[in-house]
Amino acid sequence: MPTETEITAGLSEIFAEVFGREIALIPALTAKDVPGWDSFKQIEIIMATEERWGMRFTTRDLDGLRCVGDLIAVVAAKGK
């Protein structure tokens, strides 16, 4: 079961691959804060996150995503 630190580190790698540059991840970060974070990139992030931790998000998981902190919480909850 990954810790929050491990999840954040993993997400940092995913964001770097998706955006082609390093993104400093803080829990409060939202799509509005990152240039280029559109619905296409959003799906890339979700897909890569599912792949990395071998999990599948439900529609309810996805509806609850507002910021990076929510994503970390979903991965942590599903990884238990």
């Binding site: 619905s39 799906i43 890339e44 897909m47 792949e51 599948r56 439900t58 529609t59 996805l62």
Partner: peptide, 16 residues
């Protein structure tokens, strides 16, 4: 096909 992506973005072919 992944129903989640269909409901999320009307992608019938899953992005994966």
């Amino acid at each position: 096909y992944n129903p989640t992506y269909w409901h999320l973005a009307k992608q019938e072919i899953a992005p994966a």
